[in-house]
Simulated assay, not measured.
Amino acid sequence: MRKKKTTSADKTKKALELAGKLPALSGEELPDVARRLGVTEKELIRLAETLSMCGLPPYTPDALFDVYIDENNRIHARSPVGLLERPVQLSGTEGLALLLAGRASAGARTPALSSALEKIRAAMNPAKLDAADRAAKSLDIAPETGGLDPLLDTISAAAADSVKLEMEYFTPSRGKVSARVVRPYGLIYNVDRWLIVGWCEMRGETRVFRADRVKSARATVEIFERPPGFDLETFRRDEMFKHIERTIPVRLRFSGGAAGWACRRWPERARSDADGSASVEFRADRLENIVGMMLSLGPEAQVVSPPELKTLVASAASAALSLYV
């Protein structure tokens, strides 16, 4: 029987349970605390590191979890005053913010999120609820992932059953659709798009594919073995961006102080020119991610190619300028 996969919701629930018990064990040795909580020492250390960055607004020292391990290998923990002793109460503004953030994340397709949003809506003041609906509509923050549901269901099922996928995938840089056999490890929802993590047999390595570029996917009956110790959440946090297939060639030129910054930022890719400027070439997955950097460097940063990036930067600069003229 295949071991049940641990989800992010499971990990969050476990962390909250341990956070409630940890202060009562403050001052005891790390191995003893780990044993009493039913976790490994490594898991307990990771929990301590995470909790030390969590707390309540305005996130002053007294409003954060105070968790540390001393030189005698004893763990000390103190929760923010009153955090775990009273039910969570939200102001109308906090409820509105949560509702908008939840709607923006609704593409994650998690039943727990949908249930939580319904509970928030049921408890909110009708006037605030109307304001939330109007704001969501005006901001256009609803995710555009609904049309992918059948494809995502196919990929999720294949990942759960550890069966290979036959997939047709579009690569923009070549303008072609290629047939690939992929061993799907799982799906990751990142900002506003779904990403497929899996071993690409054509490339012979782990790849991250954009779901909106998959033209078709069919589960086979061929079973595959996952890499030992592979964890999707750990991959998302530590490895994902190293494996994204970047297909858009970008060339930038930097002058003045930005030239030195570019050489430090891309030491293996930057090329110093005779006039003191620096040129950098790389491949990107999303041109939108480069716009903010270019605007922040002002006239010392110039897009050489592609034309689409020039248009995006010009449009963003014009929009910013319009606020002041």
Rank of each mutant, 00 (worst) to 15 (best):
V303N: 01
R210A: 09
T12D: 09
E268S: 10
F224A: 10
K164W: 04
T171E: 13
A15V: 12
G147D: 05
R283Q: 11
K4C: 06
R253H: 11
L113T: 06
A108T: 13
M1L: 12
Y324P: 01
S318T: 11
S315I: 04
A15N: 13
R86V: 08
V250Q: 07
E85R: 08
E288N: 00
G204Y: 06
S277M: 04
S318H: 10
M293Y: 08
L151H: 07
S8D: 15
T40Q: 00
L22T: 02
V33I: 09
L90Q: 12
L99N: 05
K21Y: 00
E308C: 02
R86E: 01
R269C: 14
R103W: 08
N190M: 13
E29N: 06
A159R: 01
S138T: 05
L18N: 05
N73A: 14
R134Q: 13
W199F: 07
R226N: 09
A123N: 15
T206H: 04
D153T: 15
K5H: 15
L37K: 06
A15F: 13
K137A: 06
Y324E: 00
E29G: 09
L37F: 05
H76Q: 10
T40F: 03
L232P: 06
A284W: 09
S178N: 12
A123Y: 11
L252M: 01
P80Q: 00
G92L: 13
D231N: 14
K119N: 10
D133W: 04
P87C: 02
R210M: 08
K176W: 12
L37N: 04
E168Y: 13
F209L: 05
S318E: 10
V221Q: 15
G276H: 07
H243W: 08
V304N: 00
S8M: 14
P306C: 03
G107N: 03
N72I: 10
C54Q: 13
L321G: 07
E222Q: 09
R103C: 03
A112Y: 13
E168M: 15
I196N: 00
G92I: 10
